[in-house]
Amino acid sequence: MKISFVLNDRPTTVEVEPSMLLSEVIRETLSMTGTHVGCDTSQCGACVVHVNGKSVKSCTLLAPAVEGADIRTVEGLSGDTGPLHPMQQAFRDNHGLQCGFCTPGMLMAALDLVSHNPDPAESDIREWLEGNICRCTGYQNIVKSVIAGAAAMRQAS
């Protein structure tokens, strides 16, 4: 079947099997590998993308369910050549990643939080990132990065 959606501001139409996952459509059909698949069992959050502005696990969404949706992946944050998004820059500045495997999901989940809570407390961040697992950092610097990224975004707006 054919499905159409907007991906990082670009209208996109692809031919899919109904049993394909959104994560497969993004990574395999469209060759955009910024979105990671860690567990494939809905637990780790590496695959988080925005669908209609809300963070969701793309490994647990059937492709037909995103017909007509507005989708944003980590590639949509700063474009191919533009400067990093303030949240990406904050992760870089604050050592918010080591191997980087969890980072796309962390960024997309954090940006969803900041979109309606521009100045989140540490407890808000920890609660919101409950579904994002990082095996490297111990989370301290991820929380620090989100606080810094949110502050940079407030300043920019």
Binding site: S55, V56, E130
Partner: peptide, 9 residues
Amino acid sequence: IGDQQVRHR
């Protein structure tokens, strides 16, 4: 329930 991404769906 679960985490925020689970609660969104």
